[in-house]
Amino acid sequence: MSVEPKMPKCWRKESKPHKFCPGCGHGLALKALGMAIDELGIQDKVVFGCDIGCSLLAWDFFDVDIVQTHHGRTTPVITGLKRANPDLIGIAYMGDGGGYAIGSQHLVNAATRNEKITAILVNNTNYGMTGGQMAPTTLPNQKTETSPYGRSIEETGYPTQGPEMVAAIARDEAYAARGTVANMRQLKGFFKKALQNQIDGNGFSFVEVLSTCPTNWRTDAKGTWKYLEEEMTKFFKVGEFKTPAAKGEQS
């Protein structure tokens, strides 16, 4: 092994190296999240829920309590936990299939009920774990295993705009943003704000993360980053879409 990259304190060393493919964005997203947890000093309070999808490979990722749930059902599991024990800090971590397809009703309803949890959704424009099928976030004309001739906008619509949707339906106390693994500092900042919003008891917080899936994209390192930075950002605007009306920020 060459030099070990510095790990966030809350990462579980025994479970590293992690199980994601080389070049996968999940590891980076979880690094930014780990740093956010460290900086907020909340390792003892966080309960991390991961979905079914490649996010499940994080079931032993952190030195925090973790529950791996069913596909699409992480948001309600964490909602139930938080409702039963508001002292905990609940994080629901999922893929775009988990959050925007099978679990979309949970995302919508958690947002409208203003559940005081943090949902993090990794957007890699496909279903990674099941071998690269079309996802709600698949780009127009993108070839996947179930859109072998390219995603047809006529037949299957446009890529889901998650944070925009959450911003539209959630209350003023909610937080919604889209970060990218190409900008780790900003991503960590979004995570911190999202978690702070929960800590302050404001309401729902949601961060979508633009991420990479070289295995199913069948890209090399260069192609992977090009796709992330050039193609994906054409449809997915990075930034904050809703910041809570001040309560927590005044102090």
Binding site: A101, I102, T130, G131, Q133, E145, T146
Partner: peptide, 12 residues
């Protein structure tokens, strides 16, 4: 259909 292993390739 909806993707799930080991059924995926029927859809593919």
């Amino acid at each position: 259909g909806y993707p799930i292993t080991p059924q995926n390739e029927i859809m593919h």
